[in-house]
């Protein structure tokens, strides 16, 4: 069977896979990192988004073998060892940006890539445009957009702490 070697959340793994194994199947079934979700079979929902070599990608639409040598970050790799959440996770919590939570791992991973690639800052319309590949059946997106708007200030060092949700109203 073919083998793939990749680094996930800082740890290097060599895993035997079938050629048809998807990256999301490798993550969930072989590495037991079940934070990355599968919400569709049409590549449209974004629940499976992870970072691969610094870019957001749909892990359901990437072969495991295409991740040979890659550096992958999943939702499990964001918080610090002491449990401190990534500013984007903290913002989702503070802004009540999730209900059932199914879309959340993909939303958070897409949001981090979006913010990292726009150091000049994003307005509300740009955030909504950037979330085009992530579907949420619960929240109506509003609080997700607010959370990302607040998180970018912390991520770019323009604010030391997250603006509290009630102050943003």
């Amino acid at each position: 069977m073919p083998q793939v070697t990749l680094t996930v959340n800082g740890k290097t793994h060599t895993v035997e896979v079938e050629a048809r194994t998807l990256l999301v199947e490798l993550l969930r079934e072989k590495l037991r990192l079940t934070g990355t979700h599968v919400g569709c079979d049409t590549s449209q929902c974004g629940a499976c988004v992870v970072q691969m070599n610094g870019d957001s990608v749909k892990s359901c639409t990437t072969l495991a073998l295409q991740a040979e040598g890659a550096t992958v970050t999943t939702i499990e790799g964001l918080a610090k060892a002491d449990g401190t959440l990534h500013p984007m996770q903290e913002a989702f919590r503070e802004y009540h940006a999730l209900q059932c939570g199914f879309c959340t791992p993909g939303m958070v991973m897409s949001a981090i890539d979006l913010v990292e690639k726009h150091p000049q800052g994003l307005n509300e319309a740009e955030i909504r445009e950037g979330l085009e590949g992530n579907l949420c059946r619960c929240t109506g997106y509003h609080n997700i957009v607010k959370a990302i708007g607040a998180a970018q200030e912390v991520m770019h060092g323009r604010s030391a702490t997250l603006a509290p949700a009630h102050a943003a109203e």
Binding site: K58, E132, G133
Partner: peptide
């Protein structure tokens, strides 16, 4: 084209 993740691949 599509969305950011589609454009990244």
């Amino acid at each position: 084209i599509g969305d950011p993740a589609v454009r990244n691949r």
